[in-house]
Structures are given as C-alpha cells and as structure tokens.
C-alpha cells in the first residue's frame, strides 16, 4: 500500500488499527506528527496511539477543513469550529485528550473555548450539573470564596 502512496501523503494508524491516508500538510497540523516527520523518524505509516478511529477521523476532518479554508472568510471557519466542537461529553473528552496529546493547537483552542462557554455566565448550580452531573448541597455556602464572590449585594 505504501508503495503506491502518492507523494506528500501519509498514513495515520489509529489505536484500533484503522488506517487513514492524509495529505502531509494536514497531518503536520499536529505538532507531534510534524516533529516526527521533520526528524525523519517516521515511515510512511505513523501510529497514533491512544486515539481510536472514530476520534482520529474527527481530528482529520477538522484539520482538513482548516487546511483548505485558509483563504475563506474567518467567520465561516469560526462557524465550522463552533459546530464541530459541539459534541457530547465523551467525544469532547476524547477530542481534548487527542488534541492535547498530538499537539493540534487550533483544535485544542476551539475545544477549550467550547468548554469555557459551558461556564460563562452560568450559575454555580448549573456548572456543577454540567461537569459533575450532580449538585452537592453541603457546598460551600459557608465557604470564604463563596462569600466574597457571590455576595448578593453585587449580583
């Protein structure tokens, strides 16, 4: 397979053994992969441990879009980003881990932004449900931080 591979293409192999043929320019948006390619310690097939096929496909989709749309309006890309990262918690967690581990800065930024939106302007109650899935009642109503920051006079 690698012999018939076009120039400037790389094969990425997910943790569960699925292979993806990806243009090099797209693959090197991962800084970790870029370093491997530059150090020439990569054969045509690059293993991507800890990232399964499902998540790897998503990461590749994101990188392809960002590679293609350099000329596109920034606002279009932003819309794409916010739709792309709008996923369930499990996928979000896996994507963040993959983006962090593989050092894909643009993707990590978009994902962190998405999680930050879950906090922005929300009540403590809401944030707890969102992240922990439950509300602890004994919290912190006597807590020092709570007293300073949730003073009713200023809310």
């Amino acid at each position: 397979m690698s012999s018939s591979l076009e120039k400037n293409m790389l094969i990425l192999r997910s943790s569960d053994g699925e292979e993806f043929i990806v243009p090099e320019v797209v693959a090197v948006m991962s800084k970790a992969i870029k370093n491997m390619v530059e150090d020439e310690c990569a054969s045509n097939t690059i293993p991507v441990p800890n990232v399964d096929a499902n998540i790897l496909a998503m990461v590749i989709e994101f990188c392809k879009k960002h590679d293609e749309s350099e000329a596109e309006a920034a606002s279009d890309l932003k819309t794409f980003d916010s739709e792309f990262v709008n996923r369930g918690q499990e996928a979000l967690y896996d994507l963040i881990t993959a983006a962090n581990f593989r050092d894909v800065k643009e993707l990590l930024d978009a994902l962190c932004q998405n999680v930050a939106e879950m906090i922005k302007g929300k009540s403590v109650h809401h944030i707890r449900i969102q992240f922990l899935g439950y509300q602890l009642f004994e919290i912190l109503t006597s807590n020092f931080i709570w007293n300073i920051w949730c003073d009713r006079d200023f809310d």
Partner: peptide, 23 residues
C-alpha cells in the same frame, strides 16, 4: 483532564465565572 488544560479553560472566562469553578 490534565491540569494545564483546565487552567487554559478557566483562563478563557471572566474572573467572576472562574471563581464559581472553585466550588
């Protein structure tokens, strides 16, 4: 998630909202 990522995330929100995450 790794701590550095959590710090990145709270770095993106207002101080008032960041304070809420302390609970």
């Amino acid at each position: 998630l790794p701590q550095c990522i959590l710090v990145d995330i709270v770095n993106l929100v207002d101080t008032k909202d960041a304070a809420k995450t302390s609970t």
